[in-house]
Design a protein around this nucleic acid. Structure first.
Lengths: 128, 128, 128, 128
DNA sequence: GTGGTCTAGACCACA
DNA sequence: GTGGTCTAGACCACT
């Protein structure tokens, strides 16, 4: 296997990765994904597990499969906008919770974030 | 075991947890930690692994061990402030990277965050 | 093969199809059927299986074979009326049984059916 | 295997059967179903296939699973009413289509059905 | 015991 | 080739 957690099923972690790739424009609307077999090799995972991830995303309206042709990112842009919105929301929620647990007030969260963005602005993100 | 990843040694994951407990005030400066044996039972992990996590944190100046007495959170407030700062920094870095990968500009990150905080301000999130 | 079940011999399933085609006027009284060879190709089934279906229907007086000419739908209208009646009866029996198994009383079956026909009457189902 | 078609995946046929058992009161709200292993033996099918049928029905809100305890029919009566309604609708649609294909008008369908129900009323379903 | 996940390997339908 | 289904057998977490 590759870089998977034990805390969540692999097929859901795969689905999450694909979602992030779509939102991050690494996968464009309408684009063909790797076949379940190729992706199985790429991630060193059984094709059935890839298949399950694809099925889940198809059920969510994010992917479409065409028998004998392959699996594709949906071309319904609206659905992809929804997806982006929900992933962003989740990121923010997680971030805010973590910061509050460390004793930050909402105002401090915003100002801490602004400070950080200000700093990397001049110095431009030296490393990765 | 409890909720550990496979991608990182358990002792480091334990160390992270303890750091977060300290920053989140669940563990106060100078407070005694559970013995490696008790903690091993609590997290269902080998005491040696706990010991290794403690050693790592001692090396970082966050914990102190007193022979025959146990392991304690350091009383050097400055060190704890540093710790808090670095954890917060890490949170922000992770958050910003994720948001930028999803195509958000710095300004959008801040406004998205403010929007979120504004929304939960009036109404929700009274619980948890 | 095409769309056959495993629960019943294919030749009987074929015979049923032909019956339905006759009752549904896709095959008229006196009309010539495809040769067993052509039909075998059409349904991707062994010609012997087609022959068996034809024989069965001939036994039931629905088809007639004329040596050297082929197989024809009978011209005995009375027999076709019987056939239609028996197929319809079978449909109704199946339908009523299913509805009763789902807890519908005879009166509810009729009213449910009327409701449905009433609904499609004004509006939908212009297609197909 | 038992009595499955080739035209539809077994796991969906299983799901349909279970739905019909629920609507037909053979399975009551809140009742425990057979374990995936027992059901696998009963239907001579791999437990994974049973599992898939159960998952599908859970996704549809018809079953609920409690880890370590088993799989149960939901106790949300409203959901079960919906289910019954949709199955009945499907029965009627199929029935009406078949009858129309055999040349019956809506009025004839109703009268044919009433005639049938009238007949079995006196004679009381002799067989089966 | 229970359900849930995963692998390995097979076969099918569709293009 | 593609995805979709199924089996056999394994291991896990939960009760």
């Amino acid at each position: 296997m590759d870089g998977f957690h034990t805390s969540q099923p692999i097929y859901l972690q795969l689905a999450d990765r694909i979602k992030r790739m779509i939102v991050g424009q690494e996968l464009q609307a309408g684009q063909k994904l790797q076949s379940v077999r190729d992706m199985g090799v790429a991630y060193n995972v059984n094709p059935n597990t890839i298949q399950r991830a694809y099925s889940e995303l198809e059920r969510e309206g994010i992917l479409e499969t065409r028998r004998g042709q392959g699996t594709f990112v949906t071309e319904q842009e609206e659905r992809l906008r929804q997806l982006r919105g929900s992933l962003i929301e989740a990121q923010i929620v997680t971030f805010v919770r973590a910061m509050r647990e460390m004793g930050y007030s909402p105002d401090e969260i915003v100002s801490g974030l602004q400070q950080h963005l200000h700093n990397i602005d001049k110095g431009e993100e030296a490393h990765d």
